[in-house]
Amino acid sequence: MNRSAIRAVARLEIAEVMRSRALAFSIAAYLTLAAIFLLVGMRESSILGFTGMGRVLMSFTHALLLVLPLVGLAATGQLLPSVRADGALELWFSQPLGRTSWFTAVSLVRLGALLVPLLVLMPALALYGRLAFGQPIPWAFLARSLAVAGVTLWCSVALGLLVSVHSRSRARALMGLLAVWALGVALLDFGLIGLMLQMRLPPALAFTLAGINPIEAARLALLSAADPELSVLGPVGFFLANRLGTHWLLVLGLGWPLVLGALAWCTALFRFQRGDLT
């Protein structure tokens, strides 16, 4: 892996991403969600024990858990079929450039392009709450929200790259990434419990499926700051919170998407290093 090659590719990839509609779409999605939760979240009620800016951040991040996997997968899932089809891959790999360097640079830029707007937007929201409504900045919850958003994005980007290296066409990649996203959303424990009751799935299987779902894990990490109640955490979260405690629930919730993302990224890189480039 060559640092100067990574820098060169990253600069170019930033230029490509800045001109892409995907970035504009994800920023628009973040801003829309933030505006909605800011407008409705500053009322005097409380959600899951959170009030004021904490409630806004909690609701915003909770909603992001459905959006972030989609934007992460969309930003990377069609990457390789696209660059293969337009000849860019052929052009770059006729330059003195290692496969690992290119893959690393592109992964970092795609992740950064989705994460940096959140790193700006979330503290800006908290600051706005402070200035406009005199709300204290919930530093701990802000850090937790950023960490949850970060690991969710990392896992989604890595899974998207895994789909991408296995797809020869954009259409197939699109099918693959939609399947991954639908699976992630369907295996959130509330949905899964409904499915379990309807299809008479064994509870152990339903709990395992929910437990290995990185979106569920990230959700539990976010909610581990709330009261450990069944209605808040859902059956899997409630079970794990009681068995592990909220501290370990946070560790598990942040750690599992991180590990799964790392596994997916390494597998994608392994496949990319051995596959054809056209």
Partner: peptide, 8 residues
């Protein structure tokens, strides 16, 4: 065929 890059 030269690739249609978005970069300048």
């Amino acid at each position: 065929i030269a690739p249609q890059l978005a970069a300048s």
